[in-house]
């Protein structure tokens, strides 16, 4: 299974990846303004139907050293994606190559996936007459043709690399092993929600980058499935359906946090 390894210690924040994503996927620019919070450089503010990948700019003090670290928001491409389970029409699917892709022609616009996703990744085309859900596809068309995703190909420092998931995990472990003081000893995405196909390495705690650190190590899929089963069909009131899914997922996450004895909150801003 293919995956991306994002090593934020190698990222210089040039945002070639953000533009590469737009270029390859033909995503239009958003109208933006100077974004003061947290620190000016980040733009757009968040993922959207037009922006599938965002570099974040984080100032941190760790081990007595000031750091400016660049985080990466994009779809994590879960091994067992709850978005795909939540989708009533199977518009979202996990491909065996790794990417979680979607078929816009099938999408009903119900937004179950949005609530099912622990990373708040799928975004809704609010400005369209018949809005659909959109998100990063790990450039599935490129991957299928034997190419790297656009973000990985463009990265000057190989902060984003593409490869077999197990190779990338071995590489990540090797990097931590070789430079134990240079990294937080954790591969983000190796185990989170049962494992994802986007893995992260960092030199600062992942909360500093705005990543959720309260996620369980097992897949949320079973819970999503349960939630979907208690909803008769989409025609039932949307609010009820969404509420049910959301309730199950959030409870699952809460439980996970409890298991960790109430460790810090984090969460995407």
């Amino acid at each position: 299974m293919k995956a991306l390894l994002i090593d934020v210690t190698r990222c210089v924040g040039c945002r070639g990846c953000q533009v590469a994503c737009k270029e390859w996927n033909e995503l239009p620019a958003e109208k933006t303004r100077f974004f003061a919070s947290p620190k000016g450089y980040q733009n757009p503010r968040d993922l959207s139907s037009k922006t599938w990948r965002v570099v974040t700019y984080n100032e941190a003090q760790t081990n007595g050293r000031f750091e400016w670290v660049f985080g990466h928001l994009q779809c994590f491409h879960c091994i067992e994606p709850s978005c795909a389970t939540a989708c009533p029409v199977s518009a979202l699917q996990k491909t065996k190559e790794g990417p979680v892709v979607y078929d816009p022609d099938r999408c009903l616009g119900c937004r179950y996936c949005q609530l099912a996703c622990p990373f708040l990744v799928p975004r809704f085309e609010w400005d369209k007459a018949i809005p659909k859900i959109t998100k990063c596809t790990m450039c599935a068309d490129r991957v299928a043709a034997g190419e790297e995703p656009a973000c990985a190909k463009v990265c000057p420092t190989d902060a984003i690399v593409f490869g077999e998931r197990e190779d990338l995990i071995a590489e990540a472990e090797n990097r931590i092993h070789r430079n134990p003081r240079g990294y937080v000893h954790h591969i983000y995405g190796k185990d989170e929600v049962g494992g994802t196909c986007v893995l992260h390495l960092s030199n600062v705690p992942f909360e500093v980058l705005g990543y959720r650190t309260d996620l369980p190590k097992i897949s949320l899929r079973e819970y999503t499935k349960t939630a979907m089963q208690v909803v008769p069909h989409v025609k039932i009131g949307l609010a009820v359906a969404l509420g049910a899914v959301s309730w199950v997922i959030q409870r699952r996450i809460r439980n996970g946090r409890d298991e960790k004895n109430g460790s810090s909150s984090g969460g995407e801003s």
Binding site: C14, R15, G16, Q18, V19, A20, E23, W24, A150, K153, V154, C155, P156
Partner: peptide
């Protein structure tokens, strides 16, 4: 249709920054 980094190029090996990537 598209403009991307040239993987054969000995300086950038296919990679680009935000500006070069926006050449399209």
């Amino acid at each position: 249709v598209s403009i991307e980094g040239d993987p054969d190029h000995p300086i950038n090996e296919g990679s680009l920054c935000s500006k070069g990537m926006a050449l399209y």
